[in-house]
Structures are given as C-alpha cells and as structure tokens.
Design a protein around this nucleic acid. Structure first.
Lengths: 335, 335
DNA sequence: GGAAAACTCGGAAACGTTTCCGTATAGACT
DNA sequence: AGTCTATACGGAAACGTTTCCGAGTTTTCC
C-alpha cells in the first residue's frame, strides 16, 4: 500500500537508481531531475522502507539498549541521556528491559546480531564469557554503561571510591556503627561486580579501624519497600547502627520512611546516605553519592556511535567522577 | 558474516524452504529432517535476519512508542507497564522521545508507516488532523494512552473528573483561595486537551460559588523547578492562595520546595495537591490524584496488540479511574 | 571535426527471508 | 500392477532498497 521507490521512479519518469541517488546524495543528479524526483516523492508521500534499506545496506541504523533494574529512577535518567542524543541522530533505538534470568538469556542470545542492530548499549550488566564470545563472533560494537570489562568499551563509575567517600564522610562525622543496605552481592546479572560498593564500604571501615559487622549488612532486591524493611530490621537490632549507607537512593528513601515509621529523627537519630543522586534525592534533602547519570547515557551512545563508525578502533574507557553531595540526612550521632 | 538460511540448508542437506518450515512451523516436516535442520541451526548459531523476514512478510514485529514529556516520572511508569508486556511478547519496541515541535513533526512524518512498525503507542499527545490523515492512509493501528480522539483507540483518563475531585477536596476542607499550577494550556503537543484539568478546576470552583481568579493560575513548562518558581510567585501575591493544586506531582514537589524556602508549613500554612501519584508522591506524603500509570501502559500495548491482530475491529476505548489519594499535604486553612 | 573526458542516468543484481507452485516418493486401494 | 492420495520437500519469485556496471549525452580540447 505505501509507495515504493518504483512508484516514485515511474511518476518522475526516471530510473530507480536515480531516485536512490537523490535520496542518499550518493551520486550527482542534475537539478532538473532532482526536482522532478523530489516532487514525486512529495506527491506520493514516499518514505523509504527501512527493512529494504537495511537488507540492502547490511546496516540497521538501530541500536539496542539493554537495561536491567528497569524500575530504578537512575536507569530512567540514563535512558533520558541516551534519548537526547538519539533524537539528534538518524538512529532508532530498540529497548530491552530484562528482569529475570530467562529474559537475560533470551535477549543476549538473540539481540547481539549483525543484521539485527548496529550496536549495543548495555546498562549495569557484566557480560559473561559466553556473552563476550558471541559479541566477538558477531563483531558487533558494544558499550557498557556502569559496567566494566577489560575487553569492551565502557563508561566506568568508580563505585569503590564512591562508596568509600560516603562511608568516610559518616566516619568523619563520628559514626562508628554504620550499616550497609545493598543489592544482592551475588547478583544475577552483574556477576558480582556490584560488590565494588561493598568493598568500598569495607575499606573505609577498616581504614578507620572499625569492624565490619555482618549483622550490619543487609541484602535485598532493589525496591524502596525492601529498603524500608531492611532498615526496620537494622534499627530493631539490640545494638542498632547510627548511620545507614545505601546502595541506591531508592533504598535510602525506603530507609527514610522506616525512620519516620519508628519516629526517629533524621539526621539527629539516624544518618542516611544514598547513592545515585536521582532527581528526587534533592527533594528529599538526601546526602548521597552523585553519579552523572544523564551524562553517562549521553557518553555511552556517543562512544557507541564512534565504535560503529570505526569498528576497528581500540576500545575506549571513560571514567566519570562520583562525588559526595552532602545534604541534610547526615549529622554527627547523638548517642 | 552471520550464517544465513542458505548456509543452514546446505549444511543440513535440505532446501531453504524446509529450513523456513522448521523455523516457523509453517508446514509439516519429517522428524528426521527437522532434527538435521535443528542441528545445523545449532551448529551455525543461526538466527534469522529480521530485515529479511520483515521485508518478506511485510510485518516488522515492532511497535513504536512515542513519548512526550520524557522527563516525567509518570511517563517512565507508563513505559514500564509497556515493557512488562513487551518482554513476554515477541515484539520489539522502538522508542521515540519528542520534546520539540521539529522533533514532533519529524517523528509523525516518518514513523507511522507500514513497513516501519506494525503499530503505534502514543503517550500524552493529541493527534492533529494531519496526523490522523496519515494514520488513516497508512492504515496503521494506533493506540493513544492518556489521550483522546474519537476515531482512535485510546486509554482514557478522565482528567476533568480527577481535577474536580482534587479541588472539591480542598473546598471541602474550607479553602477558598485555591491556585492552579499547570502546563501551558495551549500546549505544543496536545492541542489544548490538557485544558481538561483546568476545566475540572474551574468547574469545581464555580460549583462552589468561588471565583476563578486569573492571578491564581500559572502556566509553565513541566519541571519541578518551574513548579517552585511559580509557587513562589503565587505565595508572594498580596493575597496569596491557601492551597495550590498542581497539574502534576512533579510540579507539586516543586511547590513543596517553595514552601520550605519560605518557611511555610505544609499543610498548616499551605495545602498542596498533585496529580499522577508517581512513586515518590507516597514518599513525600503528597495528597494527589492517582492515575493508574503502569496499568495504562499495560492496557495500551494490549489494546495495540489486539488492533494489530485484527485491524478491522472497531476502535476501543478504555477508561481508567482516577482517584483522590489523601495524604498529608492537605488540611483546613489556618487563616 | 573528432577523440577524450565529464557528466547523467537506467536497471540488473544482491541483500535474507517467506511463500507457494510443483514434483517426487511412499503408501493405500482396486 | 496400476492409479490415486497423502506427505515431504526443493527452489523460484517476491518483498524494497542500494550499488555498480555500463551506456548515452554533452562538453572540452587539440
């Protein structure tokens, strides 16, 4: 039903090659002919069929964005960064959200294919050996955002340093009993690389000569409600912590809720530090570790575009800073 | 570089038609042959090239999701609803975020095409006559989410009723001076259909015999910061309002910030009502009008799938309820 | 004026599928 | 044994592009 390039050629009285030339500026066309072709295109409201184009060119002009933890506001921020670049480009974006292992498998099996997409942008996932094998075999450009792999381009965020900063801040305020609420360390997707924040936490404690108390570490699936639950558990301990550092702002907001539930004042009775600096951290006056979320999305696509442009270039690594943003949920302990 | 169906056929010692049959179960194949084909597929790690398939079938197995106000958490919620359904289907999703008029034009000109996508899911945009013409001409299924058009399927949210509820609640508490902070009424994208909430606001006032005071109505682009600014303006009026109803929770959070800036207590000195009930409204204890955001995304795709399945079915209209959620930012006025 | 160069342009081939027409083989029935 | 039916399968054609070879026309230059 939609017009094809043949219809345009016929109406303009030229060959299909000429129409294609006009469309892509791929070879010189006389002014006169160009005008006729453009008129025909206009009249027929012709837009080239992308499948035909893709098939012929072997390029899809599409990138896949694969996202885990799609419930997190931080992922949304990153995605927004990506979209802001995409809108200016002539690329399309295919979105894949993965929440479960079967989904992860399906996506990694089917998506990283030449002929399917031109490149992959992967958020917060640590590729396995198997993934890497496939990527190599398909020679498909990949950029990890908030991920690390020595053989793949990535936007790297120094989680260990960020966590250390946060905990050092608490220690500096005089806290000795600092708990940590995290995602599962042996995470399904990231194969343990989110241990980094935990390690930063431990390092800071040890550097200050403080013990790492296992009962002060809780793990749970990434929701605010879980943050609240875990905080309640911590605060009901015989010897409760005076400060809680959280893997994400999402968790931290849950902790603030828990404090409210227990009529604890923040920061007088309890200090809370989050991670990410999502939009609403500012609103909640939350002390947190800022990641450049939007920016990481922007740089991620840009890196990917470069890699698509120039597939043989060496991998690139961009490190974005993390910085502690001190707001009003941290203070010296009262007791 | 990737294996094609011809490679598979050759390796398995069969014809390409047979391979295709195995892939799509499109005609009976003997057990023996099927086994050989599957083995070859396995060995070559073959996955059909989507462009070829699309071109041949005239179906893309892709839907476009077009989103405005992509900064809003509410849109993210909707998108999450969409993704949850998509993940279970064998459809891909192409995401388009539009923030400006040129972007809007480009997207509406190029995306609603047979051969490009099988269907469109459009968030919070009111299609123009021109859009409709194109959609009709291309005979492409469309579902509007948070939109209304008599000739297109849509998930409808009764904004007028929602706004009325909110304002009636404030009036019920005894407020007489109720301001409204909104998006631009003559909005670029929605051609005035977001007037509905404004009309609900006016209706409620008039029903209670209260005047609609123009100085109590502010319009601005959709960000929390703008909400804050507009609230400051309102609160510095010679005769400031005692309650502010907001077009979105985003705005409302800005209003709360403004109140904090001015050392006003909420709800004692100022009542605030939002709209959407995004995740963080609960955290902020915000009284708001709940929309079933996630659900609207879910139902939107489902409607779209139905329409793709059965293109000649009459358009469908689903109305999702809005409900007032009273939390702690509203109370009777003190003065 | 004629050869060479420059400029235009037409359309077959190729991209990787699915579809479908047609053929081959095996089994059933008379 | 011969005919018919059912079953299994091969491969050409078609989908809508881009690419590129080759041909036609005009211009340039000696």
């Amino acid at each position: 039903m939609p017009a094809t390039i043949h219809d345009v050629a016929k109406l303009a009285g030229v060959g299909i090659g000429t129409v294609s030339s006009v469309l892509n500026n791929s070879r010189p066309v006389s002014e006169e002919t160009r005008r006729k072709v453009l008129e025909a295109i206009e009249k027929l409201d012709f837009v080239p069929n992308p499948s035909g184009r893709r098939l012929s060119m072997g390029k899809t002009h599409t990138i896949a964005v694969i996202i885990t933890y799609f419930t997190l506001a931080s992922q949304f921020e990153r995605l927004r960064g990506v979209m802001s670049v995409i809108a200016e480009s002539d690329y399309d974006i295919n979105l894949f959200a993965i929440e479960t292992i079967p989904q992860r498998n399906k996506v990694f099996q089917t998506v990283p294919r030449r002929g399917r997409v031109d490149g992959l942008l992967i958020f917060s996932i640590h590729p396995t050996k198997e993934d890497l094998r496939r990527i190599r075999q398909q020679k498909i450009p990949v950029v990890l955002v908030e991920g690390y792999h020595p053989e793949l381009s990535h936007i790297f965020l120094d989680d260990m340093a960020g966590a250390r900063q946060a905990v050092e801040h608490l220690i500096g305020l005089g806290h000795q009993k600092i708990a940590y609420i995290s995602d599962y360390l042996d995470d399904l997707f990231s194969s343990g690389f989110n241990r980094n924040r935990y390690m930063g936490y431990c390092q800071a404690l040890e550097a200050a000569g403080l013990p790492v108390r296992p009962e002060y570490h809780r793990q749970g699936w990434h929701t605010r409600e879980n943050g609240r639950q875990m905080a309640l558990e911590l605060l009901n301990l015989p010897d409760p912590p005076t400060a809680i550092f959280c893997f994400s702002d999402e968790f931290a907001l849950g902790v603030l809720e828990a404090a409210r539930d227990m009529n604890l004042r923040v920061p007088e009775d309890l200090s809370v530090v989050g991670y990410d600096d999502i939009e609403l951290a500012r609103f909640a006056q939350l002390t947190t570790v800022r990641q450049h979320l939007f920016e990481s999305g922007v740089q991620g696509v840009e890196l990917l575009f470069e890699a698509i442009e120039n597939p043989d270039a060496p991998i690139k690594e961009i490190q974005l800073p993390t910085e502690l943003v001190v707001r009003q949920t941290t203070a010296p302990p009262c007791r």
